[in-house]
Design a protein around this nucleic acid. Structure first.
Lengths: 247, 247
DNA sequence: CGCGAACTTGAGGCGTGTCAACCCCTGTGG
DNA sequence: CCACAGGGGTTGACACGCCTCAAGTTCGCG
């Protein structure tokens, strides 16, 4: 399944066609006709960029030039507070767009870091603006993606503002499994790509609270944990937690 | 210059021209040339809608048809959790756009409610898509606004995820005064349009904690509170709180 | 294989939620 | 004009969920 291991090295000019990408049904070009897809092919994506685990895709404050579609791998975005605290604002996987935060001011507002060896499609923003001007359904799709990001963030605000630690973790796990499922992976077996601390930062909790909640879930028979290997045995139970059904 | 005061009652077909609106420099058409402004005039805004205090602009789940620019008044948006909790996700004032949450799925994701007697410019979404296709700088501006909303939400996530109650309230007050200042109002004298409970919901706190924090700020000489009348006497001190300078 | 990072678990403290009483302001109706 | 009701706000006492600090274990990368 992981053919990425056998990819050729020169990925820049070849293989960046959306039309032949296995993610085209969940990525930016969703809903484009064959004709439209051919039109944007090799114009939308200028190149691919390979990032080893831990590499920075862009930093807060750096000039905004492109948005990135995750092709393989896994990312986090985080917002640094002047005094040292920082907040993970999202985790991104295949087919998801990173970098939309930069459009507003021309500078990125968050840091984007690869959590495992990854590859992104580089979409120069001027090109995206031009093409979405030419291809109406691309414009529509781009707007939907930005709106979706707004809605997602509001969901996180709800989570951070009014849920208990275990409810937050349950919501996080379910969100993750749903996204993995949409990409054809198992919804029950998950390998976490991020540390407890990163989960905690995203959920507004400490790493200890995350760890304890995992242990509690296991004790209650909701899932099995073994470090970053998670096997969810009772998704309905997790959903009930999210819905505020307290034991 | 404020002929809006003398507007006739039939605001639908007349008086909805962006070019003669006093908010055009902070609203959707920022940065458009005179020519462009004339072009979108009377096409972008289909009508105005008047809402008394407490009126619902739209509800979560209702079909998405238009976005709204606040012309006068003040709004909140909030996200309801199935079990009854709900989270205020934002407060909107003159020149700000409401309704972007609906683009993603064609249904609104939040409720939008007027917190005082208000008026909004109705911008049918199909028209916005069409015009932003025709007028490139309108498209660019619209993207900036959506991106700005994403960045704002991430800032709130930071606030909710890793700040103390008083830091949150200080950040909230400063954000409010900055926005008021940008609209030509005093940055020191503020009349809150929302209740303690709504502030608390937005900040992930209870109304009691909000009230206590206000009292503490007053005791420390940062501001004067008298119900919804706030007078900020030490904005620098508030900023230091936000920056994590403790005592 | 070994070292450091990541994770787990426990004990105790702190910040904020919960519950309750009281006050103030406004609007209403006698 | 005053009595009253009701919503919004303030303040206090207490409880509780999560953070902090610390020790010990396991994992995974070089």
């Amino acid at each position: 399944m992981d053919q990425s291991l056998f990819r050729p090295f020169h990925v820049g000019s070849c293989g960046t066609a959306c039309s032949s990408c296995n993610l085209r049904e969940i990525c930016l070009p969703v809903g484009l006709t064959k004709t439209e897809l051919d039109y944007i092919d090799r114009r939308l994506v200028s190149s691919r960029r390979r990032l080893p685990r831990g590499a920075v895709l862009y930093r807060s404050g750096s000039p905004f030039e492109a948005v990135y579609a995750v092709w393989t791998g896994f990312f986090k975005t985080s917002l640094a507070h002047p005094d040292g605290r920082d907040q993970v604002t999202g985790f991104q996987m295949g087919g998801e767009l990173i970098g939309l935060d930069g459009i507003a001011s021309g500078q990125h507002a968050v840091d984007a870091v690869a959590l495992e060896d990854s590859q992104v499609c580089v979409i120069p923003y001027p090109e995206l603006e031009a093409l979405s001007h030419e291809v109406v359904s691309l414009q529509a799709q781009f707007h939907k993606i930005m709106s979706h990001e707004i809605v997602r963030n509001q969901g996180v605000m709800l989570l951070l503002g009014s849920m208990y630690a275990e409810e937050r973790l349950a919501a996080f796990l379910l969100n993750l499994t749903h996204r993995l499922e949409a990409r054809g992976f198992s919804a029950s077996t998950v390998v976490l790509r991020m540390s407890r601390e990163e989960i905690g930062s995203y959920l507004g909790l400490t790493l200890e609270t995350v760890s304890r909640s995992f242990s509690k879930f296991q004790a209650e028979g909701l899932l099995f944990v073994r470090n970053r290997q998670i096997r969810i045995t009772d998704p309905v139970g997790l959903q009930q937690l999210v819905d505020g059904v307290h034991a």
